[in-house]
Amino acid sequence: MNPIAQLGQKRFVSLDLARGFMLLLVALAHASLFLGSSLLTRPESMSMYDTIVNYLSVFLVDNRARAMFALLFGYGLTLIVRSYVKRNKPIKEAKTSLYRRAWFPILFGFILSVLIGGKDILAIYGTALLACCWLLFRSDKTVLRSIMALSLVYVVILPLTWIAMAYAQFNGNTILPGNYTHYFERVTSQFIQFATGGPFIAHFLLPVGVSILIGIWAGRKGLLNESPKNKPFLKKAAVYGLSISLIGALPHALYSNQLIELPPALVGLTFSLHMATGILGGVAYAAIFGLIGPKITNPSGIVWAITSLGKRSLTFFIYNEIMLIVLFSKQTLNLGNQLGMAAGWGLTLCICLTALGCAAWLESKQKSGPIDHLFRKLVYRKSSPRAS
């Protein structure tokens, strides 16, 4: 039997809860970029609370939220393919759907990053899917070998790339464009970056492909399908993954918060370590929700609201990004230059609470998120499986 057809199709609380929580982490990570983070360094602390938030961000959010997002993205892809297989749909039809799922995020990412000015990751995931789509129809062994091979590639690429970026920053060059005063200036710059292959080039900087492949492998094994047999493995993944993630974040936490000084080469290496161990942090977060999910038989209250948010993750990812732009961007209210990290995160949490309220209202009306609805219309056209 095809390994992707072995599990039944249902909506798992674990996945929706993880997606909802992931949106909060991604919003907090992106808020830092508006508040003065350069990836390699943290925004200057104006109070003890800012310092605490800076450390929390390095240890728990930065390069961890994105890894969790990518893993859940990969996991969802296996559910989509499985839904086609269970309905005896042609493989060609499944591949067509997946390629649409790749190209439309690239389009949405273009609109978000170029025209709106958000910190987009949709286009990066779209390009990753273009590259790994074929693996969704290969054996588990092939997927596992691909994870190991790509991981080895990044062991070489990440240090070299980020050492170069560190030297660029030490020489006074910005590595995060975004300090634009005028809208037209920003659109022009972002368009050039996108048109010259920005979403593809980003894979030399961000190892999202590894997390997506891990998500595909986990989906093939059904690790988040709330089965009791997965509990021992998920416990180990949560404990070991989180431990390695925290240890790997320590050197960058000390440097980025200016407790130690390092030459550019070591800055690049510590950041590469932070990013690589962040992949395991994302795995740990997903495993934690895999453990929590089976305990929730009848979601209510805040859990119900977060799962409602997770069901509409595309809509509220874009909503959060737009709200961050409105509040923090120089072209709008410019609060990014006026608030410290603690206040900025507080405001971001308020944004997420409004998203939570809107998602709960949509759930009570049994309505999908408007952008999720549009995306499904574009991808599936008429009638096709809609597992996610």
Rank of each mutant, 00 (worst) to 15 (best):
K95I: 15
T96W: 04
S97A: 08
S97N: 11
L98P: 02
Y99A: 05
R101T: 01
F104L: 10
P105V: 02
I106M: 04
L107R: 12
I111T: 00
S113I: 14
I116K: 02
I116R: 04
G117H: 00
G117F: 01
D120S: 10
L122Y: 10
A123D: 13
A123I: 00
I124N: 12
Y125M: 12
Y125P: 08
T127M: 11
A128G: 06
L129S: 00
A131R: 08
A131L: 15
C132P: 04
L135A: 10
F137I: 02
F137E: 05
R138L: 05
K141M: 07
T142E: 10
V143H: 02
S146W: 11
I147C: 14
I147E: 13
I147G: 12
M148E: 11
S151I: 10
L152N: 07
V153P: 13
V153D: 13
V155F: 13
V156P: 07
P159L: 03
L160G: 11
T161V: 06
A164S: 04
A164C: 03
M165W: 05
M165N: 01
M165F: 08
M165I: 03
A168H: 00
Q169I: 03
F170Q: 09
G178I: 03
G178F: 11
N179A: 07
N179E: 05
N179R: 14
Y180G: 01
Y180N: 05
Y180C: 02
T181G: 14
Y183M: 07
F184I: 08
E185K: 03
E185C: 00
V187S: 09
F191M: 13
I192P: 07
F194K: 06
P199Y: 07
P199W: 10
P199H: 13
I201C: 09
I201T: 03
A202D: 14
F204E: 07
L205N: 14
P207C: 07
V208Y: 05
V208S: 11
G209T: 06
V210E: 02
S211D: 10
S211L: 10
I214T: 06
I214F: 00
I216L: 02
I216V: 15
W217I: 00
G219S: 06
R220M: 15
K221L: 10
L224M: 12
E226C: 09
S227N: 14
K229N: 09
K229M: 11
K229L: 13
K231W: 01
F233V: 09
F233Y: 15
F233L: 13
L234Q: 15
L234R: 13
L234G: 10
L234E: 11
L234H: 14
L234W: 08
K235G: 01
K236I: 00
A237F: 03
V239N: 03
V239Q: 05
L242T: 14
L242I: 15
L242S: 13
